[in-house]
């Protein structure tokens, strides 16, 4: 895929999302479902990589770009990640007080909640690809409960999950992963 095209597809995701992973449904639809330059497994791996390393969650777009187009793809991902940030300049300069206007707030709130609904929809194929046995299901459920009820850093959770599945594999339970 042409790198400029990849940048525009990734930008379509980042510029229409208001949180790191909220761009995932749009990117999934473009790169996985439509252009087939990425798999749901790679999308999951991109999330693993960025949640296991320092920096913002939105960095997963860089991993996605790398998987789809190698190093030039990673550059496209980086550009798609940073481009929307420049929009804060006109916002700070011109729109500051209007951001409190009820109509603006209502539109933004609706977009954010819609992003959440779309992200839940996007998690279905990710789960279908990633949760393939009793142990991976158990890991996902336990991690989800821990994420809701504790302040464990996701880095330690992902490392712990990796250790559990590695242990399960080494004691002959690979078929349950």
């Amino acid at each position: 895929m042409n790198i400029g095209h990849l940048y525009l597809l990734l930008l379509k995701g980042t510029v229409t999302a208001f949180a790191g992973l909220a761009s995932l449904p749009v990117i999934q639809e473009s790169l996985v479902d439509h252009y087939h330059v990425l798999t749901n497994e790679q999308l999951n791996e991109a999330v693993v990589i960025t949640r296991s390393s320092p920096g913002p969650v939105g960095l997963y777009v860089v991993s996605v770009g790398y998987f789809a187009g190698g190093l030039p793809g990673a550059v496209a991902g980086w550009l798609a990640m940073i481009t929307p940030a420049l929009l804060i300049i006109p916002m700070v300069h011109f729109v500051g007080r209007r951001m409190q206007h009820p109509r603006v707030r209502s539109v933004l709130q609706t977009i954010v909640i819609t992003s959440a609904g779309l992200l839940l929809a996007a998690a279905i194929p990710l789960g279908r690809d990633g949760l393939t046995g009793a142990i991976t299901w158990a890991i996902a459920v336990i991690c989800f409960i821990l994420l809701l009820t504790t302040k464990f850093d996701t880095l330690w959770m992902i490392l712990g999950a990796a250790l559990v599945s590695l242990t399960a594999s080494s004691v002959g339970l690979m078929a349950y992963l």
Partner: peptide, 19 residues
């Protein structure tokens, strides 16, 4: 094997991000 576990955790992270 380790990646499979990490990916299962990532699915949980994605669902939790919805909330």
């Amino acid at each position: 094997a380790a990646i499979k576990g990490a990916i299962a955790a990532a699915v949980a992270v994605t669902v939790k991000t919805v909330w």
